[in-house]
Lab assay of single mutants.
Amino acid sequence: NKASVVANQLIPINTALTLIMMKAEVVTPMGIPAEEIPKLVGMQVNRAVPLGTTLMPDMVKNYE
C-alpha cells in the first residue's frame, strides 16, 4: 500500500503548506501520494483541513 499525505495539524484556509504540516500515512481512500510532499510545499489549501485529514487533490490550489 502506498502512503498518502495527511494533515499533521489543523491547516487554516489559504495557508501555504510547509513540511511540518504534513505526514505520510497509509489511508483509505488514498489521497495525494506521499512522494508529492516536496511539490506541495508552498502551495495553498483552498479550505480548512482538520488534523488527521487526508489531503485530496481538490483541497490544494493549482495542484495537478
Score class of each variant (00 low, 15 high):
L51R: 15
K39T: 05
M56W: 06
P12I: 14
N62M: 11
N46R: 08
G52P: 01
E35M: 10
A48L: 12
N14V: 08
L17Q: 00
I13T: 12
M22V: 08
A34L: 05
I32G: 00
G52I: 01
L17Y: 00
D58S: 15
I20S: 13
P57F: 13
L10R: 11
T18F: 14
V41G: 03
M56G: 07
L51W: 11
Q44F: 09
P57C: 03
L19Q: 15
V60M: 03
Q44R: 09
K61M: 14
V41Y: 06
N1Y: 14
P50F: 13
G31S: 04
V5M: 03
K61C: 02
T18H: 07
D58H: 14
K61L: 08
V60R: 00
G31T: 01
E36H: 03
E25D: 06
I32A: 02
V5S: 06
N1Q: 15
Q9L: 13
G52L: 13
A3F: 03
P57A: 08
K39F: 06
N46H: 14
N46P: 04
Y63Q: 08
E35G: 15
E35D: 11
P12S: 11
I32N: 00
G42M: 07
E35R: 09
M56H: 15
V41N: 05
E64M: 12
T15E: 12
I11Q: 00
K2Q: 05
K61P: 13
E25N: 15
M30F: 14
M21S: 07
Y63K: 03
L17M: 09
P50T: 04
Y63A: 06
M56E: 13
E64L: 05
T18Y: 09
T28Q: 10
T53R: 08
I13V: 06
A48G: 07
V27Y: 05
M59L: 09
A7W: 00
T18C: 03
Q9C: 03
N8A: 11
K2E: 11
L51Q: 11
V27L: 03
I13W: 11
V6Q: 05
V60G: 01
G42S: 10
A24F: 04
N8G: 11
E64A: 14
T54G: 03
P33N: 09
I11V: 15
I13G: 10
M56P: 01
Q44D: 07
T18E: 04
G31D: 00
K39Q: 15
L51C: 03
M43P: 00
M30V: 12
Y63F: 11
A3W: 02
I37C: 02
V45E: 00
V45L: 08
E64I: 12
A34K: 05
E64Y: 05
V5E: 00
N62H: 06
A24I: 14
E36K: 08
P33D: 12
M21Q: 08
E36I: 08
I11R: 00
L19H: 05
R47H: 15
I37G: 04
N8D: 15
V49H: 02
L40C: 03
V5D: 01
L51M: 14
M21W: 07
I20R: 08
A16F: 10
E36W: 15
P50D: 15
P38Y: 11
V6S: 04
P29G: 10
V41R: 09
T54E: 02
A16P: 15
I11G: 00
A3E: 10
L10G: 11
A48S: 06
T54L: 04
V5P: 02
E36S: 06
A3I: 04
N8T: 15
M22G: 00
V5A: 10
G42A: 10
L40K: 00
K2D: 09
Q9N: 11
V60L: 10
T18M: 09
P33W: 10
P50S: 13
Q9H: 09
L17T: 01
A16T: 06
M21R: 09
I13H: 14
N1G: 08
I11N: 00
N14G: 14
E64P: 14
V26F: 10
G42C: 02
A16V: 08
T53K: 15
R47F: 14
P50I: 08
V41E: 09
P50K: 12
A34S: 11
D58T: 05
P29T: 09
E25H: 10
K61A: 13
T15Q: 04
Y63H: 13
V49Q: 03
V60C: 02
N8S: 06
V41I: 06
G31C: 02
M59I: 12
L55N: 00
V49D: 01
L40A: 01
L10I: 13
N14M: 09
K61G: 14
K2V: 13
